[in-house]
């Protein structure tokens, strides 16, 4: 098990429990009562820690090395799934995966960012940072979904679109922009869920949808807290403050009306009970698709565009106030 820094009390309790178990296995002393007590303590401590998570702690959880990724969820949710590869222009991006699958009788096109589960795979997946061909593959699959009238599911989990020379040469910006433009007009339902990190253009490049939700311990922001710290504070040391200032948690996003729903995670985070998490996610996706299928494509597109058109906070000043402004 991997414990995060704020889980130290939990880690100590786990160690104690292990010791007790060893003692009781080796000897004749019955430790079951003590172990039970300790387990209760673990449960309470976990509840306490997890009910007061800071923004930065949620960022840490979203990056937990044992957290489930897109392919795990796909295989848990779909009885049948065929992965599809390539953007048909350049190559197959490994940081965005996708294919056609079946969720309880409903065929869907399901895609998302993919991170690696070990050091070698993390490199292979480019740490979930897609190149333009990843976004173009995603668009190809979405267009296919539209032709065959399959709903689209996008799972978001990226530290950002890849900032590299080749990515710029092949038009990272154009690829993301094109997806936003096309997703706005896609005739089939689009359900998006942030399952881990939702960083910037890399996230929203597959994140424009009819229903956008976030798992409880994830974040969504215009920039990762570390980069924000380095730019605005001119130092990498203010990531905690940046995480707070950016108001990037699911609770904030829901309060701002930017996302539609928060998906509860099992106590201790998605990684502590991945199968349960997959079941919760599947229920959410099924419910969302069914709701959206009640609408006609035209209604969906109109509602989708209106939803985004309404995001923004600003003041409207009257003519007299404008004059005052220039005088002051």
């Amino acid at each position: 098990m991997v414990f995060l820094d704020f889980e130290t009390p939990l880690e100590k309790l786990y160690e104690q429990r292990e010791k007790l178990q060893q003692v009781s296995e080796e000897g004749d002393i019955d430790m079951s009562a003590a172990i039970k007590e300790l387990e209760n303590k673990i449960k309470n401590t976990r509840k306490e820690i997890y009910s007061n998570l800071t923004g930065w702690q949620k960022v840490q959880l979203s990056r937990h090395p044992e957290r489930p990724y897109t392919l795990y969820y796909i295989h848990q949710m779909c009885r049948k799934f065929v992965e599809l590869h390539g953007d048909r222009y350049f190559k197959d991006d490994k940081a965005i995966v996708g294919g056609i699958g079946n969720i309880d009788g409903q065929t869907v096109v399901i895609l998302g960012h993919q991170k690696g589960v070990n050091t070698k795979m993390r490199q292979y997946r480019n740490f979930g940072m897609a190149n333009p061909e990843g976004y173009r593959k995603a668009l190809r699959l979405m267009k296919m979904a539209e032709r065959f009238n399959f709903p689209v599911v996008c799972l978001i989990d990226t530290p950002g679109a890849y900032p590299g020379i080749e990515a710029e040469e092949r038009g990272q910006a154009e690829a993301i922009a094109r997806n936003l433009f096309e997703m706005a007009q896609l005739k089939v339902p689009i359900v998006c869920v942030v399952i881990g990190e939702g960083a910037s253009g890399g996230a929203i490049g597959i994140g424009l949808g009819d229903k956008v939700s976030m798992m409880e311990n994830t974040w969504y922001s215009v920039i990762a807290p570390e980069s924000c710290s380095s730019i605005l504070w001119r130092s990498w040391d203010y990531k905690e403050q940046a995480a707070e200032a950016l108001k990037l948690t699911a609770d904030h996003m829901f309060d701002f009306g930017i996302i539609d729903e928060i998906i509860k995670e099992p106590l201790g985070g998605a990684h502590s009970a991945p199968e349960e998490m997959a079941k919760i996610l599947k229920r959410h996706i099924k419910k969302s698709i069914n709701e959206l299928l009640e609408m006609t494509p035209e209604e969906r597109i109109e509602a989708r565009i209106n939803k985004y058109a309404n995001i923004g906070v600003y003041d409207v000043v009257k003519e007299e106030e404008k004059v005052e402004e220039t005088e002051s």
């Binding site: 993301i176 922009a177 936003l180 433009f181 096309e182 706005a184 007009q185 910037s200 253009g201 929203i204 994140g207 424009l208 969504y220 922001s221 215009v222 920039i223 924000c228 730019i231 605005l232 200032a245 950016l246 108001k247 990037l248 904030h252 996003m253 701002f256 930017i258 989708r304 565009i305 985004y308 058109a309 995001i311 923004g312 906070v313």
Partner: peptide
């Protein structure tokens, strides 16, 4: 690019402007 001080609101302007342009 995006204005960091408006966090996710600035990010969403990407979706907003692109969606409007599609119209």
């Amino acid at each position: 690019g995006a204005r960091m001080m408006e966090s996710a609101f600035s990010l969403m302007q990407m979706a907003k402007t692109s969606a409007k342009l599609s119209e």
